[in-house]
Write a protein that binds this DNA or RNA. Sequence first.
DNA 1: CATGAATGAGGTTTCATTCAT
DNA 2: TATGAATGAAACCTCATTCAT
Lengths: 228, 228, 228, 228
Amino acid sequence: MKTHSQASLKPRKTPVQARSGVTVEAILESTIQVLLSHGAERLTTTRVAERAGVSVGTLYQYYPNKRSLLFAVLERHLGNVVSAVERACRENSHRPLNVMVAAVVQAFVDAKLARRDASVALYAVAPDLDGEALIAKLTKRAETAMSSMLRTAPGVRFSQIEFTVFMFLSAIAGATRALLEVGTSQEMEENLRRHLVLLGQAYLKSAAGQNRARKTRGRLQLPGEQSA
Amino acid sequence: MKTHSQASLKPRKTPVQARSGVTVEAILESTIQVLLSHGAERLTTTRVAERAGVSVGTLYQYYPNKRSLLFAVLERHLGNVVSAVERACRENSHRPLNVMVAAVVQAFVDAKLARRDASVALYAVAPDLDGEALIAKLTKRAETAMSSMLRTAPGVRFSQIEFTVFMFLSAIAGATRALLEVGTSQEMEENLRRHLVLLGQAYLKSAAGQNRARKTRGRLQLPGEQSA
Amino acid sequence: MKTHSQASLKPRKTPVQARSGVTVEAILESTIQVLLSHGAERLTTTRVAERAGVSVGTLYQYYPNKRSLLFAVLERHLGNVVSAVERACRENSHRPLNVMVAAVVQAFVDAKLARRDASVALYAVAPDLDGEALIAKLTKRAETAMSSMLRTAPGVRFSQIEFTVFMFLSAIAGATRALLEVGTSQEMEENLRRHLVLLGQAYLKSAAGQNRARKTRGRLQLPGEQSA
Amino acid sequence: MKTHSQASLKPRKTPVQARSGVTVEAILESTIQVLLSHGAERLTTTRVAERAGVSVGTLYQYYPNKRSLLFAVLERHLGNVVSAVERACRENSHRPLNVMVAAVVQAFVDAKLARRDASVALYAVAPDLDGEALIAKLTKRAETAMSSMLRTAPGVRFSQIEFTVFMFLSAIAGATRALLEVGTSQEMEENLRRHLVLLGQAYLKSAAGQNRARKTRGRLQLPGEQSA
DNA sequence: CATGAATGAGGTTTCATTCAT
DNA sequence: TATGAATGAAACCTCATTCAT
């Protein structure tokens, strides 16, 4: 199993003074820029500092090691996305399922595209970060928010709501990621939004239906058998 | 943009002799093992060679540099997955849409889970590999195969078949990846298969329906409006 | 030969005001604590300041550089020890040799043990301090004091008094150091005191006797020959 | 307490091949040279490698970190000294006490002076090395050897032989060290040898006498009382 | 005066790659 | 052909010291 020297991932000091705030902001932003321009493999703390217009020493005053820096960037970005999703969930309780889905998709895609550079850049760093812990935490938040919302959807009931939400979120995240990685155009983005809504609505309705369906039809259709 | 010293990514020599075949196999397998045990950041050519029971020198006889090694591993793994999907597509032409979806999902998940260790390990290396080129090529193959198949589905017609297939594949890949990353259980895997089929069937039917729907209803339901 | 940037080793300002006195005291004490808790290699000016409850800037107001700080600590500690020895020497002129020895040993050990933490901690810094100069100066003081005293010992005469005193002092210092480094117990300390006195008395008597002995017996017994 | 990252102190690979042997030897020797010419504080692995005529990388093939290198040098040097003492002890069993002492002193001083440069240089590194563990081990060896020998001395019996040996060894080590640190001359060295023998013989005889003496005279003479 | 953010030279260590054996 | 010792560029990180506030 990956044994990462358990160096703290937490920032060293929280910037309280005005100047520090600017410095930290510059460092985080530079990290994304260097990630985009040089790739994860060639991101060095020196390069980040240089781009941010500070010395390496300064960088290390705020982040005790390289991983904690990357972690901070990732955390902020994903945190924003999750917060957007949470807000959408809060604001759309008791609406029809279709509306819920459309709202969540819109929030998610908007948040991702708002910082599409960061989104793309960060796909490359999560692996080496024990990002799993972070991802797990954030995923949980999103799942919780969405589950709560879905339970208020009129006329629908999910038998496996947790897992369904997990599938929903990871599917739209996967599709969005794939699109961002191949590169987007205005048109592609519109397609993405439209199809994500389609996919989400179709899936959730289907998953809700499963509830009753399983009782009557027994099981899913598998390859090798003829549909009636 | 990432500027990678354009060292050849191609293996140095094709292993024709029996012995070479064994050696190469050992090297590729060790790569995955080291990836899993040490993480991408701490994968070194020396470590891979050591684990494979050969000297570094020997490793470099087959792969001119580290990236070509990783590339080979990634290529083989993804190639297997895509081939499985292609086969499923070939074998399910003219079947009902539901069957097609179930077949592709099964092929995809089977291939991924057959080497779940490799799947997980490789998520971490693709980014630093200009994997995009490779991914693009393989994605293209899968898309082509699936598009061909879908065009033979009885009674269905897709207006944006290319994009729809892209969405379908990246969505199920995203969900599968997410599940593998959090760690799976027997039960989770069954849920995954069932829900992927559900999701795929629901989405494709919906996307096919869109065809006509758009003519009549004009546009998708967006948040903020009441559904009828 | 060691070339040390000849930055001044002298403190920057003499603490005359009451507040400064407290500050300087805190700084010196913290130095010892950090030395003990982190080791010489990881003693940093920032850490010392932090522990002393002042800012680095303040520390640098009193000591122009790190070495001057360490030098001050070492000087104070060794100075105390030497002063104790000097006092013992002054107070025991004209006493019998045995009393002189016992008095010096007691003074030395008392001084060392009074700050055993400092004693141990400082063994680690002397080397990198050109401590030799300081040590030489202090050793000189101790030697002078002790030689003066010994010359007043009734009925004894040393042929090589300087060297004999050097041997005496470095031997008891060596034994004390060794004991402190392995860690002491109440019982060990008593043994130390007793045996140091024993050793000192025996050696000095023997060295005094040598005077005449050399004339009659010619030379020391060496291994390989049978004693009569 | 000093918390040293418990990086292995053991060498990475034992040099079996001829060339490696030469390389390792060169590295160890350079370490001493750099220690002497630059001081412990300014000893860097790069400098050592440079002086040894190899690259840093090579150095790190044999020693996993700086401390393990210093440790190896210290271990070898002290090991030699202790071995010499052990040999002397083995070869002088059953001889008169005076001969024993003279033999051990000679062995010790010879070993120290044979590599007086190393001796001096290494005084500076032991502290930051957890040298204590090593020192403890080696001291134990020397103590054991000497205790064994002393028990065979005709007509003598020690009540606290362990402690007495400890005092003896650390006293002569201390005196030798002090002399080496102030710098020696031919004449000084002769004096050192002569006085160490004197000191050792006098102390051991006295300590052996203590045995009976304590019964009759009760206690040692302390300052402040008149000797009869 | 005191503070502590900023500096950046320089130290330790890793690791892809080569090449003499 | 296989080996693995040697290389050295380059990465990460520390810390003595300064100086604007």
